[in-house]
């Protein structure tokens, strides 16, 4: 079924598509868009995602104007006034010997809405700032992963021969390498070394490191299906026809193969985003992702680990944020797959 859709798509995205007026019902993109627009689950998931992104973008407004706090500076001795009562941010501990301090719990007011972490920082504000980093890393890593995978998979599938041999063997090795071990190996080296890319110094605190690490580790998972798709396209009738017409190989690659690979890639975008958010949080939880004082949902969960039994909200809130985001992305991913990939319509 997808092969039947492929040549139509070629005329749609091809250079001289203007010469052939495409009927709306024939474009797979419009068809996918029409299906998605009717899909209530997809719309719901999309709205949730937009709300989460908007909330994270509004982090400075929340921190400066509503919570009036600096979520990156520790405030161990401050106090706030709630309902006319003055409360210390670090309250004297009531458990154990009563020597230590416990951060303030959720107040459900603008200030310290979700309480403070063990450095007296506003968890709600950190949650929003952390969400920015989590989403940014997941998005950038997804882009890197898709671009690398598309390049490797397309080149391997299209050129075949020894190029395919070499690339496939490399993918095989990466595929067999457990992702977390690969990520740990890479982070240890990258986080303990300083890098210079041209005039730019990339220190251990840079967000570029988790982005690159997460971007690399999942490449084989996408490059393999892309290679398979290109292999089947290479022997499809419209590519053979193009070859027969004497069209140069690079032109076939750019105009005929690549547009068809994008379908495969688009299906992977929401799923990869979801996977990358979870991976980022896991790496940050293991303290090899985002480095302090920067925050991400994973680092906040790690901050909350020591407070788990006294102030569980510190670890709960970012986890709920992750589950909501990833759930929405997975629902969207299912809908996009159903809409873009006609084969799944059989089910």
């Amino acid at each position: 079924m997808s092969d039947a859709a492929a040549p139509r798509q070629m005329t749609e995205t091809g250079g001289d598509a203007a010469a052939i007026p495409a009927r709306p019902s024939q474009s797979p993109w419009r068809r996918a868009w029409r299906i998605l627009r009717r899909d209530k689950a997809a719309i719901g998931a999309f709205v949730v995602l937009v709300l989460i992104v908007a909330a994270c973008l509004a982090a400075p407004i929340y921190a400066n104007d509503l919570a009036r706090t600096d979520p990156f500076r520790s405030t161990l001795s401050g106090s706030i006034v709630i309902d006319g009562q003055t409360r210390k941010i670090m309250e004297a501990s009531t458990t154990g010997l009563g020597l230590g301090t416990t951060p303030i719990g959720p107040t459900w007011h603008w200030q310290y809405m979700l309480g403070a972490d063990n450095q007296g920082r506003d968890v709600a504000a950190r949650l929003l700032y952390g969400g920015r980093n989590s989403l940014l890393i997941a998005t950038a890593a997804t882009l890197i992963c898709l671009v690398l995978a598309a390049a490797i998979g397309t080149i391997a599938g299209f050129f075949g021969g020894w190029v395919d041999m070499v690339l496939s063997r490399i993918l095989e090795v990466l595929w067999a390498f457990p992702v977390y071990l690969l990520a740990i190996s890479l982070s240890i080296v990258l986080l303990t070394t300083e890098f210079w890319i041209g005039p730019f110094r990339i220190g251990s605190g840079s967000l570029i490191l988790p982005i690159v690490i997460i971007g690399i580790i999942y490449v084989p998972y996408i490059a393999r299906p892309v290679r398979g798709r290109v292999l089947s396209l290479r022997h499809s009738e419209f590519v053979l026809a193009a070859k027969g017409l004497g069209i140069p190989r690079w032109r076939i690659l750019l105009k005929d193969i690549l547009p068809n690979v994008t379908t495969t890639l688009i299906v992977y975008i929401p799923i990869m985003m979801a996977l990358n958010i979870v991976t980022e949080s896991a790496l940050s939880f293991l303290s090899i992702g985002v480095q302090p004082p920067d925050a991400s949902w994973g680092t906040i969960i790690q901050d909350g680990q020591g407070l788990l039994y006294t102030r569980p909200m510190v670890a709960l809130a970012p986890g709920i944020a992750i589950v909501l985001t990833v759930l929405a992305l997975n629902v969207l991913g299912d809908s996009v797959r159903d809409a873009v990939d006609p084969r799944t319509k059989l089910r």
């Binding site: 979801a274 979870v278 949080s281 896991a282 939880f285 994973g298 969960i301 909350g304 680990q305 788990l308 039994y309 569980p312 670890a315 709960l316 986890g319 992750i322 589950v323 990833v326 759930l327 997975n330 629902v331």
Partner: peptide, 17 residues
């Protein structure tokens, strides 16, 4: 789908709690 969307370490902490 919720099971798929939960970070495993967070679920572990939740169950510990």
């Amino acid at each position: 789908l919720i099971g798929v969307s939960m970070p495993v370490f967070w679920l572990g902490e939740l169950l510990n709690l």
